[in-house]
Computed example of a mutant assay.
Amino acid sequence: MTGSPTRRASPAVLLSLGLLAVIALAALLVPPFYPHGATELVSEEPLAAPSAGHPLGTDELGRDLLARLLAGVRVSLLVIVASVPLSLVVGGLLGLFSSAGRWTDTPVQRVFDVVLAFPALILGLAFAALLGVGTGAVIVTVAVAATPMFGRVLRGAVRSQSARDYVLSERVLGVSTARLYLRHILPNCFDVLLVQTALACSTAVFLEGGLSFLGLGVPPPDASLGSLLNSSLTFLTSSPFYAVGPLVVISALVLCFTLLADALNRNLAER
Rank of each mutant, 00 (worst) to 15 (best):
Q196V: 00
P5F: 13
Q161E: 14
T177Y: 02
G18Q: 10
L186P: 01
L29Y: 07
S202I: 02
G245F: 02
A163H: 11
G3V: 13
L56M: 14
P220S: 15
G91P: 07
V172Q: 01
L229M: 11
Q161R: 14
V140L: 15
V142M: 09
N188A: 12
D59C: 03
L199T: 02
E208W: 02
P148R: 08
R159T: 07
S87Q: 09
P246F: 07
S4D: 14
R110H: 00
R266C: 06
V79C: 10
L19W: 13
V30E: 05
S16G: 13
I122S: 13
S224I: 04
V108N: 01
I80H: 02
L19R: 04
L194P: 03
L130N: 00
R110N: 02
C201E: 05
A261N: 10
L214Q: 04
G53W: 07
A143T: 10
L14A: 14
G134N: 13
F190L: 15
R68P: 00
L247V: 12
A71V: 10
R155G: 07
E208D: 12
A198C: 11
G124L: 05
V30Q: 10
T197N: 07
V22I: 15
G226Q: 00
V115G: 08
V142F: 08
A27R: 05
G215C: 11
R183D: 14
S224C: 08
R8H: 15
L216K: 02
N188Y: 08
L229Q: 06
F190P: 03
V22R: 08
S176A: 12
T6L: 15
S51A: 13
L29N: 11
S227G: 07
T2P: 15
A163R: 13
I185R: 08
L69I: 04
S160W: 01
S162Y: 00
G215K: 01
F97Q: 04
G3F: 14
D165R: 10
A223T: 03
